[in-house]
Design a protein around this nucleic acid. Structure first.
Lengths: 232, 232
DNA sequence: TGTACATCAGTGAACGCGCGTTCACTGATGTAC
DNA sequence: TGTACATCAGTGAACGCGCGTTCACTGATGTAC
């Protein structure tokens, strides 16, 4: 709309990406299979060439399809990445939510709290590593504004659930501060996963250990705040 | 080399990017000016269209140059991004190193330590925001493997300097643990900057405050470790 | 202070490639009766 | 249980665009004498 007035810009590069989501989901079995094959292939290729060199044509070639077949379901490679990213986030979220529901945050000591958190982190890392092209998906989630919503939505959902639990267990703590805290620590845990995935020569266990101490000490402090500091 | 044996792959997509660094730096004044104009323009365009839509042709057009002029200094857009990223990292590092040299880590209380750290973080964020296309450069540093070395080199240099200082001030603390800690917290501070830049509607001050508490509490714990825990 | 010359810096024009996208079409699949 | 038909799923072939890159060339700039 109003295309005639936009003369200076190169005709289509003006705004954001032309389209985003998957077009139509398949209804029959054959179509559903194709849909999955496309995504699987995209994950494979992502791991091989990275998301910059990933093209719809390349996916088609590898998947044994012609472009219009892919184009039927996905308008462009960003839709592919978005779907893959969504699935990775879902897989991660599931583990975190399960951990939360089964009392991941309750611990008798700081040491136990750190240990439980560390196990969760280890699981998250393992899931991400096992996901085809997982490292590249994490990068894409950072780099492509189209995908950022996927990550922040996932993070905020997890952070919200965590907030509810912490609020219930620590009614005296400042809710406002806890809200920032849950979002921040969730983000930091994800950032630690990225760090481990990016630099495989570093010792994952050490990093997991330390990030969990950081987070554990921080929450201990936050939930102890109200009864004013003893000495100092 | 051995190109004839690599038949299956599409002829050039085999390995990593074809080349990386800036080609030749200009020697005369005119050339130096052009070099800078190219980078400035690239930063501008980065802020406008992002790094995926950034092309050498686009930079030339905006800078009033023909492609071979740009090509004289930069083999491709990655070289542009690398140079920009390098400069941003240098600007950040300078602030951190100055802060360290002027006793940023010495504080009489945890509160003071947090406050000093918070001021540093605020500066880093301001610098990044003021840098043309700064947010996109941060994304590119994450997303493009070619650039990762730039970030890790910067981070490890800063972490190393911090480690030396902490070691000197806390000879009893575990050096191994401190080494992981300095790298981790440096990375986390950068991640917090990214978080703030990505989501401008969030309150920067709150996030800075909390990340600094996290880091401050953590270091307090680390440097108090040796004299075994009192109770528990 | 002036001139000659080597080198630096940038131009103009063109190229091949491959990416995203579309068109009219054929074949497969489920469903109604 | 069989057939007709609407719709879904995928093909084959082609297109325009613009990106990265190169070539032979002209003009600018510093330096040696």
């Amino acid at each position: 709309m109003a295309r005639s007035t936009a003369a200076k810009t190169p005709s289509k590069t003006t705004g954001a990406a032309p389209s985003l989501d998957t077009k139509s989901r398949p209804s029959r079995r054959r179509g559903k299979d194709t849909f999955e094959v496309i995504l699987t292939t995209a994950g494979e290729l992502l791991a091989e060439v990275g998301f910059e060199r990933l093209t719809t044509n390349l996916v088609c070639e590898r998947a044994g399809l012609t472009p219009p077949a892919l184009y039927r379901y996905f308008p462009n490679k960003y839709a592919l990445l978005k779907e893959l990213a969504h699935r990775l986030m879902e897989a991660q979220d599931k583990v975190v939510l399960d951990w939360l529901e089964s009392g991941g945050t309750t611990a008798a000591s700081l040491e136990e709290s750190v240990a439980k958190n560390r196990d969760l982190q280890k699981q998250i890392n393992a899931i991400t590593r096992a996901f085809p092209g997982g490292d590249w998906i994490l990068r894409a989630l950072r780099a492509l504004p189209v995908l950022q919503e996927v990550r922040t939505t996932s993070r905020d959902m997890v952070a919200q659930r965590l907030l509810e639990i912490l609020k219930a267990d620590n009614p005296a703590a400042s809710e406002d501060r806890l809200r920032t805290a849950t979002r921040l620590t969730t983000q930091m845990m994800y950032a630690a996963t990225e760090m481990v995935l990016e630099e495989p020569d570093q010792d994952e266990d050490k990093i997991n250990e330390e990030i969990c101490w950081m987070v554990g000490l921080y929450y201990q402090h936050l939930t102890r705040q109200p009864p004013a500091p003893p000495g100092n």
